[in-house]
């Protein structure tokens, strides 16, 4: 009994982080129709920035967010402006190929800068544990989950009740009509792309305590993120958070009750099955 509770708690915590990774991708997809295959490599970029700041200035990963967030937003804005915008009108496949190229650039840029060994950027809170009845949880994961849900709620409020949020939704629903309202569609797209990458800076800092980093991990983060976004229905933020939990919990249950290998396969298998039988995602897209 306590084993299953432990697995559920673990899956919930990991899954909420997956949800946050996916929110950025969903946001970008909803206004620009872009699927960024370099998404996971940007997560790694954020993690390595934390590592660099920790090595150089002994900054705690949680503190370094104040530096990595604006940095990553600037990087995201530049990537959009110089690389993605010029081919925005082209076929979706072209954008996929371009972002695959960017993925190689980021991944190997990191490899060249930091080498091929695993790195860690420790936090003061790293080894703290909490006991909730029979369940033991790591404090960094609790922080990560709390932050993920706060960000999801914040994003929801932003999109519902602010002018910039309504502009983003307007561009998503009808870009031409949005332009006629005086919305600068190009600027909204660039800002959401920058914000999507910025979210990854936060996600990276939350992942760093307790997660060793290696440049080659990017593709797997991309794959997991894609899975969560698609399961969530691409643009439905509630669906995306829910899908993150489904994937996180299935992964942790699978690892405990099946085997390591089957546990790792389970999210992909669930993805393929849902994709085939419910292509619109878990929830109806809103």
């Amino acid at each position: 009994m306590s084993e299953i509770l432990q697995a559920l708690a673990q899956g919930f915590l990991v899954g909420s982080t997956y949800g946050m990774l996916a929110l950025g991708m969903g946001l970008v997809y909803s206004v620009s129709g872009i699927v960024n295959f370099a998404h996971g490599d940007f997560v790694l970029l954020g993690m390595y920035l934390c590592f660099a700041l920790a090595s150089a200035f002994a900054l705690d990963p949680y503190v370094s967010i104040f530096i990595t967030l604006p940095t990553m937003m600037a990087v995201g804005g530049a990537v959009y402006y110089f690389l993605i915008r010029p081919i925005a009108g082209h076929h979706l496949l072209m954008v996929i190929q371009l972002t695959l190229g960017v993925s190689l650039l980021v991944q190997n840029g990191l490899l060249m800068s930091f080498g091929g060994q695993f790195h860690r950027a420790p936090s003061m809170l790293e080894s703290k544990l909490w006991l909730l009845g029979p369940v033991v949880v790591r404090v960094p994961q609790v922080i990560s989950a709390a932050a993920s849900f706060s960000i999801a709620i914040g994003l929801f409020i932003l999109l519902r009740s602010t002018d910039i949020g309504r502009s983003i939704r307007a561009v998503h629903q009808n870009a031409r009509a949005a332009a006629l309202m005086g919305i600068d569609v190009g600027k909204v797209r660039m800002l959401t792309f920058a914000a999507g990458i910025g979210l990854l800076a936060i996600a990276a800092a939350l992942l760093v305590p307790g997660t060793p980093m290696h440049p080659s991990m990017g593709l797997r983060y991309t794959a997991i993120t894609l899975i969560v976004v698609v399961l969530g229905g691409m643009t439905n933020f509630v669906g995306i958070m829910l899908a993150g939990l489904v994937i996180g919990i299935s992964e942790s249950l699978g690892t405990i009750y099946l085997s390591d290998t089957l546990g790792m396969i389970l999210p992909y298998a669930i993805f393929v099955i849902i994709m085939l039988f419910r292509p619109q995602g878990l929830l109806k897209s809103a």
């Binding site: 690389l83 010029p86 081919i87 082209h90 072209m94 190929q97 371009l98 695959l100 190229g101 960017v102 993925s103 190689l104 650039l105 980021v106 991944q107 190997n108 840029g109 990191l110 490899l111 060249m112 080498g115 091929g116 440049p215």
Partner: peptide
């Protein structure tokens, strides 16, 4: 510089797509 050759691949790919899709 391990990874340099992939880095160059990535750069060439991005440049080619932008210059001649």
């Amino acid at each position: 510089l391990p990874g340099l050759h992939y880095f160059v691949y990535g750069g060439v790919v991005v440049a080619v797509i932008l210059a001649t899709p």
